[in-house]
Write a protein that binds this DNA or RNA. Structure first.
Lengths: 354, 354
DNA sequence: GTGAAAGCGCTAACAG
DNA sequence: CTGTTAGCGCTTTCAC
């Protein structure tokens, strides 16, 4: 490697050494002035600052990280950025991270476990202070095993795994969990429908195996039980994705069979609800006059279509995740928090007028 | 600094040195095996791999970056992640970056210039291969000056500034520009309204000084000119944000004055349109029977509310930005591309039935 | 094919 | 208060 000599070549990043020689001091002094780590003479200080400005010096964060300072960034790994739920959590994470002087590294997985594992490893290479995993996984054995390994690896590297909106991996895995009450929200939502007299409630868009979906479904069943209404497997419609288009497809298909055999639909999330709504409308069915509609998430589409839905604490989810991950006293007990959810009433549900 | 001796302490990241000694080879060999930089004996190779697995070794990307390898990440700086336009572009950037083996560093600014400049500097410290700035700035002198400086600094550090959805800084500034035809889209949209017979078209939600807003407004005026319709300043309504709530507020206020003095509204974007729509509906006005409504962006709310709008090439915007930034031959000429836009017809516009 | 050694740019003892 | 120096973990000549 041809060591280049002194001349501070214009087309090269200025280094601390360049600054030092321009200011006529040692690199240590420059480091101290810049870091504010230590008192320094005003004269020295201003000489250094001038050199910094003249040279357009910008510190090299890699060198800094290597020299022992912890990294300045947290990582977030999620399915997709355009999906409103993830977008809101991501925004909250970014905001909180910025407030704590951190940058965020982001990676999306499209819901694929292998990509998720790959992303965690990448983030580990980057020495992120915290790695935040958001939402919705299939709860497989491989997932649990591999993730537990990563949690340990991260922990012993001084980093911290955070599971956000997904269940714990067990008590012996060093991961912080920040989730929300999926089942509770679904129970409340279903209860809302039931108390309005609905008995035939279509559960639309269940995604089997996925943690959030399973939680919601079980809340739905709980509520049914509570009202002594038997669960009818024919009223559960599974879907492949949780997107708007899928809700539309699913409902259209269901409607093709003939007159609706339900008076209300509880959608797996707001997007599914929006799609279902469109299919219902296209079929000439009115909401809520003919069919009541309940969503889950309380995200943008909900307001536009006046959807009664379950509110999720997106913001708190994201903020809490980074706050807990970055707090100094790791031994604190609250490494598992469950945030509440509640029904937001708009105009898509009406009592049955049988 | 107390140099720790040999014992590969369990609670410490394994380093290349640990791997080397575990495998009984030199660190150079490990580096070569892992990097695939150089041929190596199969035996050595497998010994190394075993050690890597046993120790759970994960390379340190900072050390790697420091040792000369270029970073593996690109930076994106935007107003907000929840705003659909940004979310879609961000998603495209992430996807393309991942395809090119890069991670993305993200930072949001809330539309504040100082925060934006700060973010660029941070990204520069991180040695991002490319720094992508997305959308919507106030085009001030300070902005141009500072950004031009950064562009030069980044360029000389082997990085690349990309302006995505915002205008060029001038020919002598080393930045790639990937924009879309704001004015053209507005011209087409307004033309669509005009050819349906509308003459009193309310332009709602203009954000003075902001580049995209100005572009759209000028397209609106161009179209008016083309039809020989004089521009009526009373039909231009300025807003403070580009959000749904603002559209709602603005329209409600406008309507408070009395009967609408317009037959169509052209909203600065889909969110404003969604808010305006709600206000119109609340007032008992039907869309499109009473009032025609045109949006801009073609993002999620648009489909839900059947909005006729201008489609933006979000995906191409993001992908092109990283592709151009990362391509090898920097000397190629196409460092300024303008992507097309077009009107998407749904159900919110109808001919005037005077 | 493999090892030794010289840095990449920076921080933090350790001595003045 | 400031300079000297020893690394952080890795890649890459240069020899063997």
């Amino acid at each position: 490697m041809a060591r280049r000599p002194a001349p501070p070549d214009a087309s090269r990043r200025a280094t601390i050494r360049d600054v030092a020689s321009a200011a006529g001091v040692s690199i240590a002094t420059v480091s101290r002035v810049l870091g504010g780590t230590y008192p320094s003479a005003p004269v020295t200080r201003s000489k250094v600052m001038r050199a910094v400005r003249d040279l357009g010096y910008v510190a090299n964060s890699h060198a800094r990280a290597l020299a022992g300072i912890s990294t300045k960034n947290v990582a977030i790994i999620l399915n997709s950025v355009v999906s409103p739920f993830y977008a809101y959590v991501a925004q909250a994470v970014e905001t909180q991270a910025a407030q704590e002087g951190r940058l965020v590294l982001i990676s999306t997985t499209g819901g694929d476990l292998r990509r998720e594992l790959g992303a965690v490893k990448l983030m580990q290479e980057e020495h992120a202070d915290a790695v935040i995993l958001v939402g919705n996984v299939v709860d497989s054995d491989e997932y649990r095993k591999r993730m537990a390994e990563y949690a340990h690896a991260l922990a012993s590297a001084g980093s911290q795994l955070v599971l956000c909106g997904r269940p714990s991996l067990g008590p012996d895995v060093p991961a912080i969990v920040v989730e929300y009450d999926n089942a509770g929200g679904a129970r409340a939502a279903t209860g809302h429908l039931l108390s309005a007299g609905h008995r035939r409630i279509l559960y639309l868009g269940h995604k089997p195996g996925y943690t959030t979906s399973e939680g919601r479904l079980s809340g739905y069943r709980d509520a049914l039980d509570g009202y002594g209404v038997p669960f009818d497997a024919g009223l559960r419609v599974d879907g492949a994705t949780l997107e708007r288009a899928e809700g539309h497809r699913l409902m259209r298909e269901r409607l093709r069979a003939g007159e609706p055999d339900f008076t209300a639909v509880f959608a797996a999330n707001d997007q599914i609800a929006a799609g279902a709504r469109q299919a219902l409308l296209e079929r000439g069915l009115r909401i809520p006059e003919d069919i009541s509609l309940m969503g889950y998430d309380d995200l943008p589409p909900a307001v536009d279509i006046g959807l009664t839905t379950v509110h999720l604490p997106h913001d708190e989810l994201g903020r809490t995740a980074v706050r807990l991950a970055l707090r100094r006293d790791r031994d604190a007990v609250d490494d598992h928090v469950v945030l509440g959810t509640h029904v937001v009433v708009r105009d898509s549900v009406r009592p049955v007028t049988a």
